[in-house]
Amino acid sequence: MEDARHVTILLVEDDPGHAVLIEKNLRRANIANSIITLGDGRKAVDFLFKEGEYGRGSHPTPFLILLDLNLPVLDGYQVLKIIKNDERTKRIPIVVLTTTDNPHEVARCYELGCNVYITKPVEYAQFSDAIRTLGLFFSIVKVPEKE
């Protein structure tokens, strides 16, 4: 994202270990953008709409969201639904990154409006490769500017 260093990556992941691993691998793919990690779905929604505990804060836009499905409080599907159904946030690209490869779930996510669906490989080597490839992909992706 040479031209898009100002894009913030929002990592919504309840497993802190996963969050760390994802961030490490993104950095290795030379992604220098700021990465904000959020532990559950509610926090992600609150953050985007500047509600609840993020009510006062001002945060940079635009965003790209990396979303896990199995989240506490609000799960990935609920988050996806909220973001894609809101005029203010529906243009934000969402990459679903989860352990599930159930075709049913994949289809459901695309129906709800996710832009990319990636399965987290169990083998770490592959996991690492996948995240780094994703990083390369991010570097060429165009993200809509703030509306």
């Binding site: 691993l21 199995n70 352990t99 169990v122 083998e123 770490y124 690492s128």
Partner: peptide
């Protein structure tokens, strides 16, 4: 079965991942 396999997989990814790290 799905929930259990998913939930058991998450820590496994961590173990493998951090071992590699």
């Amino acid at each position: 079965a799905y929930i259990v396999s998913h939930d058991l997989r998450a820590p496994l990814v961590n173990i493998k991942g951090f071992a590699a790290e």
